[in-house]
């Protein structure tokens, strides 16, 4: 299979590693098997449904059962006017094209993987960028935005800023993190911890405090999912990356700065979300959906 070079391969993050020689060894004598660049086969692309009975994946859209147009004066009654044959059950199927073949008006809940394409359907080829990763919505970068405010609360780092050295957060009094494997823990600037740390191959915790600053070990970005950095009341937070770019969360009277750092594929997004002053850290963690992992036994494992 030829390597697709027609577009930037955002999906390559999932295809990074070639097959190990050991795995390919039994087939090494067969020249045709020596194709290390071939990515794993993509799931067969569901063809555009020719018939409405084919459920083609998650869709929360309103079923397009042919219904009379609601009267403008009473739009809220439109669902009631749907045909009685339409099931009231949740339907996640692709909207049914109007005037299609006689098929059930509503397809029951179906979260299964799309069925294989029928024989004769052209092969889908490697997954394209839109298949696995959504296109990121436009967001300012650090050359465009230097302060995160209520009006402009988000900035996105580029792949180099997101992966080199340490992301430093000055002014943070506590940090809570969640790894890509959902290990969650928290640490305060004075060293009080809960949950579990995320060790990395470099013998450094993924999120840590060093010299009074919170930081993320960006070499291990792929192990990172998100983190929350909480500042002091009426005090700023400042973020700096290796290349020198920085972003400040200015102080706001009666409020405490909170910075949420999330990994989206290969980039980090920084979002400011200030909260009223005095809010306890634990309540903040819960509000942002962090639930501490159970800590390992402090005294070690019994024999």
């Amino acid at each position: 299979m030829a390597v697709n070079r027609t577009a930037i391969r955002h999906d390559l993050a999932f295809l990074r590693r070639r097959l190990k020689p050991a795995a390919a060894a039994p087939a090494a004598a067969q020249p045709a098997a020596a194709a290390p660049l071939v990515p794993p086969p993509a799931p067969p692309a569901p063809a555009v449904p020719a018939a409405p009975a084919v459920s083609a994946g998650l869709d929360l859209g309103r079923p397009a059962a042919p219904a009379p147009a609601p009267a403008p004066a009473a739009p809220a009654q439109a669902p009631v006017q749907a045909p009685a044959s339409a099931s009231a059950a949740l339907s996640l199927s692709r909207p049914t094209p109007p005037a299609a073949s006689p098929a059930p008006a509503a397809v029951p809940l179906n979260l299964s993987r799309p069925s294989a394409a029928p024989a004769g359907t052209p092969a889908a080829g490697p997954p394209r960028s839109g298949d696995r990763l959504p296109q990121l919505f436009p967001a300012p970068d650090t050359s465009q935005l230097h302060e995160l405010t209520r009006a402009r609360p988000l900035v996105r780092l580029n792949p180099r800023q997101s992966a080199v050295g340490s992301l430093r957060v000055a002014g943070a009094t506590s940090a809570v993190w969640e790894s890509s494997t959902r290990i969650t823990g928290a640490l305060t600037r004075d060293g009080q911890g809960t949950g579990r740390p995320v060790p990395t191959a470099g013998n450094r915790p993924l999120v840590d405090f060093e010299d009074g600053e919170a930081l993320i070990a960006l070499r291990h970005l792929k192990e990172f999912r998100r983190a929350l950095f909480v500042g002091a009341d009426d005090a700023p937070l400042a973020v700096r990356v290796y290349g020198g770019a920085s972003v400040v969360l200015p102080p706001e009277t009666g409020h405490r700065n909170v910075l949420l750092v999330s990994r989206i594929g290969s980039v980090l997004e920084l979002r400011s979300d200030p909260v009223p002053a005095g809010a306890p850290a634990e309540a903040l963690w819960q509000a942002f959906g962090f639930r501490m992992s159970v800590a390992l036994p402090a005294g070690g494992w019994s024999a």
Binding site: I8, L12, R16, R17, R18, S162
Partner: peptide, 18 residues
């Protein structure tokens, strides 16, 4: 590099770990 694993044209790619 590891977080930008292909050149824009796709001619240079990080692929293996042998």
């Amino acid at each position: 590099f590891f977080n930008q694993i292909a050149s824009p044209d796709g001619s240079v790619q990080f692929l293996g770990d042998e």
